[in-house]
């Protein structure tokens, strides 16, 4: 019995895809390094990671949602709502760990709401989270009356502005979360369920996968990640604006897609998403260093996303 020539097994195929994303990052970095001397210095590279960390945090949750066959457009406003509620608690003198926990619970709860409507209500993720996008933003604006909350305690700000061995704390926090997300996706039953539900929800249900709980978990994780991202942001800014997190969902979706997540569900990679975030961060950083106007930065971002998708299509098509 001679086996027919096999395509690459899935595991190494995903690694192959990640290697492609990494190659893209290296290419972009080489271009910037040759154009501007400041780019390839340690402080600037740390800076890129720091600037990418918030998007990475959001994109981790987004990747899990996308893999499970959904989408979460409400992450920005969820971050805003948990950010202003957390800030209000901090300013009111609630102990820092308690206030942060409160903000995270708000994020979890927002994710639970979207997830419940999608998983139990059977509504479409795009529409539900589009509703959430308006709803949570409105709640954040109503709660604050539209004005930022100032005066966050120094103890809180010290956490997000501090660093360990030269690595900014936000980068460390997001790296730990990324490791957790990677373990969940690749090493736990829940991760298998995410991929099965995103790949074929009906077959997954018949195979005994708890489909409802799986979807719920994805949106709750996404909400939680949005809340974490808002804590990092308000800590760095020292204030919580109800308008924070505007258009975060788009950057997060872009990073996941560049990293190889399929919006049809069933496919995606945590490592790929992280590299995708760094690609977007590097692009902005490099263009800023070269004094390129913001308009052109936007243009470059758009081009990168589309080129990444074209390469993805061309290479995955050949492997059937």
């Amino acid at each position: 019995m001679t086996p027919s020539p096999s395509p690459l097994p899935l595991l190494s195929r995903i690694r192959f895809r990640d290697a492609g994303t990494l190659l893209g990052l290296i290419l972009i970095s080489v271009v910037f390094a040759s154009l501007t001397p400041v780019f390839l210095t340690a402080p600037n590279l740390v800076n890129i990671l720091q600037q990418s960390s918030i998007n990475a945090c959001i994109a981790l949750g987004m990747t899990l949602v996308i893999i499970s066959g959904g989408i979460d457009l409400s992450v920005g406003p969820v971050a805003a709502l948990s950010g202003v509620l957390g800030a209000a608690m901090l300013v009111a003198g609630v102990p820092i760990p308690l206030a942060v926990a409160g903000a995270l619970v708000v994020g979890l709860f927002c994710g639970f709401l979207s997830g419940a409507l999608i998983a139990w209500g059977g509504l479409q993720p795009f529409i539900v989270t589009l509703g959430g996008l308006s709803l949570f933003r409105a709640l954040a604006l109503i709660f604050t009356g539209g004005t930022p909350i100032f005066g966050l305690p120094d103890g809180f700000r010290a956490v997000t502005n501090g660093s360990l061995l030269g690595v900014p704390n936000p980068v460390i926090i997001v790296a730990v979360l990324a490791l957790l997300a990677w373990v969940i996706l690749n090493k736990t039953p829940l991760g298998e369920y995410f991929m099965a539900v995103g790949g074929n929800p009906e077959a997954a249900r018949i195979a005994g996968v708890p489909v409802t709980m799986t979807k719920l978990a994805a949106y709750m994780i996404s909400g939680l990640m949005a809340a974490v991202a808002s804590m990092i942001l308000i800590g760095r800014l020292g204030a919580a604006e109800p308008t924070l997190g505007s258009l975060w969902e788009l950057d997060a979706i872009a990073a996941a897609a560049i990293g190889g997540a399929s919006l049809m569900g069933g496919r995606g990679s945590i490592i790929g998403t992280l590299i995708g975030c760094i690609i977007l961060g590097t692009l902005r950083n490099g263009l800023t260093l070269m004094n390129v106007q913001a308009f052109y930065q936007l243009l470059a971002t758009g081009i990168i996303i589309i080129v990444a998708m074209l390469i993805d299509k061309a290479t995955s098509g050949k492997q059937g």
Binding site: T188, P189, A196, G199, N200, A204, G208, V209
Partner: peptide
């Protein structure tokens, strides 16, 4: 029946992932 893009082993283990796990890790 099948989750097309997943490996054979994942398709086999799908109903019994918990039995194949220890401390939550497969």
């Amino acid at each position: 029946g099948i989750i097309r893009q997943r490996p054979v082993s994942s398709n086999i283990g799908l109903p019994s992932m918990r039995e194949f796990s220890r401390l939550g890790i497969i």
